[in-house]
Amino acid sequence: MSSAIIVIPCFNEEKRLEVLSFRKYILAHPEHQFLFVNDGSSDRTALILDDMQAAVPESFDVLHLSRNQGKAEAVRQGMLQAFHTDVDYAGYWDADLATPLEMIPEFTQQLDQTPQLSLVIGARVKLLGRQIERQQIRHYLGRCFATAASTVLQLPVYDTQCGAKLFRNSLQNQTLFSTRFLTNWIFDVELLARARQLEKFFECDPLENTVYELPLNRWRDVAGSKVKPHDFLKAFFELCSIYWNYLRPSLKKPFATLPVSSVSDAVRKAA
């Protein structure tokens, strides 16, 4: 079975963290681990996470950030730590488990079965036979934003903002997290924009061949979400920043801080 570390960014999740769900999952899937990133929480989140780690240290790990830095940076630091292990895959999942943990094996299966895939992302597509429970206003605002993001990225992606993503552990993917994100709420789009840059500067395979959107069987809005309707307006301004810093035709250099030769060598080895 393929190994994986799932990063769980946590900020004041004391009342929403489903400890029993995580414990039940690792009993069924001991090859998977969870890395909880405590993003400077001011409630009892840190104590709960430390108790989880103490109880099952082989499956739970905790990274404490000294101050709140936002979800994007919490995910980035967690992913860098996960990538520096010998696991096959590393990804991140929302702490509220809007996407059930039971979906993780379907993500790993896609990467197992298709070696050319680099990334699997969840897609909240409301189809017959699937349970996608989402507030109507957030659904329509989300569709407007997804259309704009797809246009900017020039990529037929349906759902950039689903909080369930799994990456193959490779230098190419590590590079995506090598520097702090410019955005916070839509750093998922920024990740794809960085991957587009790798195509341009390092001749990587196109995202159309390496990214797979997996329609979720279940997803639900969880009470206490920190995303508000006005955040969608902020997201459009962040989208403009992504275009200017990553995707404009006149851009002369990539975001990556790793040596060009290192990324190029990784790309050639993966080819």
Rank of each mutant, 00 (worst) to 15 (best):
V227G: 03
L258H: 10
D205I: 03
F201M: 01
K269E: 13
R194H: 02
K269S: 06
P229Y: 09
F201R: 02
R218I: 04
D265Y: 06
E208P: 01
V260Y: 09
L192P: 02
V211T: 08
K252M: 10
L214R: 05
G224Y: 09
R248C: 06
F236P: 01
V263T: 03
K252V: 10
A271M: 10
A266Y: 02
R218Y: 11
P254C: 03
E213K: 08
G224W: 03
A195N: 02
L207M: 15
E199V: 00
P215Y: 11
R218Q: 10
Y243V: 04
S262R: 10
N245L: 07
C240T: 11
F232T: 08
R220Y: 01
L198Q: 12
E199M: 03
L247Q: 05
D205K: 11
Y212Q: 09
R218F: 08
V222M: 11
L192M: 13
F201S: 02
N209G: 06
A266K: 01
D205P: 05
P254T: 04
F237P: 01
T257N: 14
L239S: 11
A235N: 08
F236I: 12
E238N: 12
S250M: 04
L247R: 11
S264Y: 12
A223G: 08
L251K: 13
F202V: 00
N217H: 08
A266V: 03
Q197S: 05
W244S: 09
K269G: 00
L192D: 00
D221C: 03
P206I: 09
E190N: 07
L247I: 08
P215M: 10
F232V: 06
P259K: 07
L239K: 11
P249R: 15
K228D: 07
F255T: 06
E238M: 07
L251G: 00
Y246K: 00
N217Y: 04
N209L: 11
C240E: 09
Y212C: 09
K228W: 07
R218M: 04
L214G: 06
L251W: 01
S225D: 15
E238S: 15
N217L: 12
R218S: 10
D221W: 06
S262H: 05
R268E: 14
R268H: 09
A235Q: 08
F237A: 12
N245R: 13
V211I: 15
S241W: 13
Y243W: 15
E238P: 07
L207K: 01
E208K: 07
F255G: 00
K228L: 15
A256Q: 04
A266C: 09
K253S: 13
F232W: 11
S241A: 13
P249S: 14
I242H: 05
H230C: 06
V211L: 15
K226S: 14
V260L: 08
P254N: 02
L198D: 02
R196V: 01
S264T: 15
V260K: 12
F255N: 00
S241L: 15
A195F: 01
V267N: 04
P206K: 09
V227R: 10
F255I: 01
A195I: 02
E238D: 15
L258C: 03
V267A: 14
C240F: 10
K253I: 05
D205G: 00
V263C: 02
D231W: 06
R220Q: 14
Y243S: 04
L247S: 07
A195V: 01
E208C: 06
L233T: 15
F236S: 14
